[in-house]
Design a protein around this nucleic acid. Sequence first.
DNA 1: GTCTATACATAACGTCGCTACCTATCGGCA
DNA 2: TGCCGATAGGTAGCGACGTTATGTATAGAC
Lengths: 108, 108
Amino acid sequence: MKAEVLKGHLEGMLLAVLESGEQHGYAIVEELKSRSGGHITLPTGTVYPALHRLETAGLIAGRWSVHGGRRRRSYTLTRAGNRALSEQRSSWREFADVVSGVLGVEPA
Amino acid sequence: MKAEVLKGHLEGMLLAVLESGEQHGYAIVEELKSRSGGHITLPTGTVYPALHRLETAGLIAGRWSVHGGRRRRSYTLTRAGNRALSEQRSSWREFADVVSGVLGVEPA
DNA sequence: GTCTATACATAACGTCGCTACCTATCGGCA
DNA sequence: TGCCGATAGGTAGCGACGTTATGTATAGAC
């Protein structure tokens, strides 16, 4: 997966992963890897700042906990996060249709 | 259409527009607007630098001409540009499938 | 004892689309 | 005569954000 194509789509995917329930950063990376069939392997330097942005924006809420001696920060979707997720979904649809149309590939 | 989502997809679309034949920058903007159903209206500060990048990369070839007293720079796809376009198409397909999968929207 | 997996973090960097602005010609309209 | 909108091209500076590189720390395996 080429680098910059993620721009603007990453945060929606993070929200989508969190929709199934509370998860911590490291687990989100693993989950995203499996959901994408191995195509998306995010460096931690990408995902942690992104989570901080989402939390600052009020789309997710984080809390610290400890498991097996290791600290974790686990996140859940806020109500605003849920709204943002459905907006992301519909704008992704629109975007994908437009790009597919211009590129002349049948819309997936 | 939100801003940065274009990142990494713009150049492929420019190549796609040029696939139908030689066109100049201003006409490309209009063509893109119509092909996208009005969803993509590129500012000239976006498209001209992008065309310069594509030309520098050897994916398109430009030449000056004059029509009705106005100068134009018209571009055509090079062989490398054609290759790049089909690569863009297949990587777009892959990307779109992956994102749709993660977001949980049926692939268009 | 060293290595790998787990878990989080941040500084510096590069890319690239956008905003804002500039130059210039032509045709229409007042 | 003068202004405006469409046509046609250009650049400087900015900002957003994903990446690279690096650092900290614990647990378990070998």
